[in-house]
Nucleic acid binder design. Structure first.
Lengths: 192, 192
DNA sequence: GTCTATAGGATGATAGAC
DNA sequence: GTCTATCATCCTATAGAC
């Protein structure tokens, strides 16, 4: 296996610590100690703590943007698109759960420029999702309820999947996807 | 109107700031400044920053425990109990959204004793919810899917309601409850 | 690429005057 | 109950030796 670059190693170690304690509760000394070096040495590979945060969050945000763009270009039903989005979230959560945690909890600590960029990406993502739901209602695939409630219910679950996945981790991703799709599409009530 | 005690005022101001920036990004000086006094003066009313955090989180956690205990004692169907839980979350979110944010994001910064107490309360709360779902499946009110997926889907949405409520705030609580109950109970698909 | 040393500032908290 | 003054500690980041 090729050895990771030192910079990537910093990002990985920091992601793990940020997930556990949050950005502000983790010091450069903590990150360095976990790597077995001194804090000053970190600055040979990165410009500062802010760069670590930006890299973690914007990388994950970009994966969501790319995934959503792909879904939007498909010519499938709204229901199928929503299934693809659920799949997208499960995939990213499995592979980047630390980044997901940091994105959710510490985006407000990004510097001005990166925070604005992040918020823009998030808003566009949500707007795409909203359009899919509205189209589904229009096409009579989705029940005519307040689109915001549908959007929020699904998105809040998907966003915090990382909390759940680490606990019940070994559940197969395909089973998780299947059950979650069914809960959201068909609800939980029997005999309806 | 009766003037709030100085201590309660500190808790309220801190809640708001913790919600916006997180526990570790808010200094005693920030809290004091918001109140128009000096940081040193805070210590006449509280023992320290940790006490503020514990008070905020354990107060909200207690409300959830009390509410869940009430639901558990009812002799109603599982579906009706779940509706009551959704109602409980919406009520607490509306009245204590700052505390909900801090409970969600900063519980890991509680001191050892209070953190253990919080985790215990949370686990008992989740276990009660799990029992309701399992009973519902047994009674054939709820579809026989993995109870953990149902539990997590509903709970993750309810836990982050505060994020949504502040944005779309003016939506009436009763409409929100009605729509959310329908999304979870019957899903979003039309003609199923 | 890592180290030691240190600058420069913020932090939680205390002592004691008023 | 609030203030000023201050302590001891921690923080991010830099300079310069090796």
């Amino acid at each position: 296996m090729k050895t990771r670059s030192r910079k990537k190693e910093i990002i990985d170690v920091a992601s793990q610590l940020f997930k556990e304690k949050g950005y502000n509760a983790v010091s450069m000394r903590d990150i360095a100690q976990e790597m077995g070096i001194k804090a000053a040495s970190l600055y040979n590979h990165i410009t500062g703590k802010q760069e670590i945060l930006s890299t973690i969050i914007l990388d994950v945000a970009q994966k969501f943007t790319n995934g959503m763009n792909k879904v939007m270009m498909e010519k499938s039903s709204s229901i199928l698109k929503i299934q693809k989005i659920i799949e997208l979230h499960i995939g990213i959560t499995i592979n980047y759960s630390e980044g997901m945690a940091t994105l959710n909890n510490d985006w407000m600590h990004l510097n001005d420029t990166d925070r604005k960029e992040f918020i823009k990406m998030r808003e566009e993502y949500e707007e795409s999702f909203r359009q899919i739901i509205k189209q589904g209602i229009k096409d009579q695939e989705i029940q005519a309820r307040h689109p915001e409630v549908i959007l929020f219910s699904i998105l809040s679950t998907l966003r915090t999947l990382y909390l759940w996945y680490q606990k019940r981790g070994k559940l197969d991703a395909n089973i998780l996807k299947k059950d979650m799709v069914e809960v959201f599409l068909n609800g939980i009530v029997k005999n309806n």
